[in-house]
Design a protein around this nucleic acid. Structure first.
Lengths: 233, 233
DNA sequence: GTCTATACAACGATAGAC
DNA sequence: GTCTATCGTTGTATAGAC
């Protein structure tokens, strides 16, 4: 089912369902203490709007510079209304991080679980991460640029996200080295560099868009570059 | 004089003089309209303190979250005193960017001017950029993380910085490809990836420090990785 | 469940004493 | 050249009407 050969961004969009509504329903059900709304039908819809508006404004001018008055205007509600969904402004990063972490973990593990060959597994991990960051661009950008400002527990959520991703790549490179498929390289360094390339896609998105580089082009290039280094010829 | 063979971080620190005081004197002399202080002896010393404090606080909590009251406390002066050096809070990013841009341009061009061989030139460009970012870590971090929030003209200064660096690498790769020393690769893509690696050094500095990776270790690794891709064997 | 009106703290900036 | 005192604005957060 999950074959790397046929994986393109178009195929990813068909196969991998990332519904913001579903995830917000999960958050809605978990966060009964801070969210004062009872009706899920109403609550989830507004929660989606709040998250989308917060991501948009934060990415434009920074989370700290975004005022809650602006957030209310952007998401079409009043100050009083907003405070039925959050306890303070600092709740927003927590909700946003939570939402992205659930999706990232789910999609990565689902798509990698039945691929054993290190080279194929590496290619799939790179593609899935790139495609997911393309789909959830505002979230990835937010998570990277704003995390350092937040409270300790949100920072830790983000750190564990980072390490989770990095470990996936380290593990694959290590396995490939051991089984002799890859050349003998430093797995930790190599994973760092691969991650830097993946991050460049969503951090410098405007640059690649201007150059008319599609996410598939970029994925192909990263994979050929990585293979050039790992597959000793 | 500028031989890449002997270039290490230790040698860089001995050879390349980057005096914050000298640069601040330049700024002090240029910015006679906003800076109301007449005596350079006093003015330059405080300007250095202001820039250092602003970089420290901005990198800890973000430029927007840093209050000018904190900045005054950190740099040992009063609100009234501070306003003899700046016209508004928005002056700070301009001064900080200006300062770094002068150093970056000077150091890069000085160290590359008499190296012709593309492979040597590429190695030197990578090393100088890494060593400079190690020395001016707070500035590089600030320039990357805060630029998007500022006024159009500061943004443009930063953009031209980015392009300046990227063009250096593009040009070297292109020359190497034409002369047959490098394999036939996409210069634009390749320069992007190299830049992403250089950025990872100052953006994830804590990570490498924890792993006890020195800037020389990192430089060696980046260069071996790049050579593996460029020098067809 | 959502709105308007308001409280209160913190911010950037300035005036005037020294 | 530097300080203290103070201004007006804007921010987060809440209370009470509907």
């Amino acid at each position: 089912m999950h074959s790397v050969g046929s994986m393109t961004y178009e195929a990813f969009n068909r196969q991998v369902m990332v519904s913001l509504e579903d995830i917000c329903l999960e958050i809605f059900n978990d966060d009964t203490s801070t969210i004062k709304i009872k009706n899920p039908k109403i609550g989830v819809k507004k929660l989606v709007k709040i998250i989308e508006a917060a991501l948009k404004l934060s990415n434009e001018k920074g989370f700290h510079a975004m005022s809650l008055r602006e957030l209310c205007q952007e998401s079409g509600m009043s100050m009083g209304g907003l405070y039925a969904y959050i306890e303070s402004k600092d709740d927003l990063p927590r909700i946003i991080h939570d939402q992205g972490r659930r999706i990232l973990g789910k999609v990565m593990s689902e798509n990698l679980e039945d691929i054993r060959d290190p080279a194929q597994r590496l290619e799939m991990a790179i593609r899935i991460h790139l495609y997911l960051s393309e789909r959830m661009l505002p979230w990835f950008y937010f998570a990277y640029m704003e995390t350092r400002f937040f409270s300790t527990d949100v920072k830790q959520m983000s750190m564990s996200n980072e390490l989770y991703t990095e470990k996936i790549f380290e593990k694959i490179v290590e396995d490939g080295c051991k089984s002799g498929i890859f050349a003998q390289v430093e797995p930790v360094f190599t994973a760092s560099i691969i991650k830097a390339m993946l991050q460049d896609w969503y951090l410098k998105h405007w640059k690649y868009k201007n150059r008319k580089v599609s996410v598939d082009d970029y994925a192909d290039f990263v994979i050929s570059w990585v293979n050039g280094f790992l597959i000793a010829s």
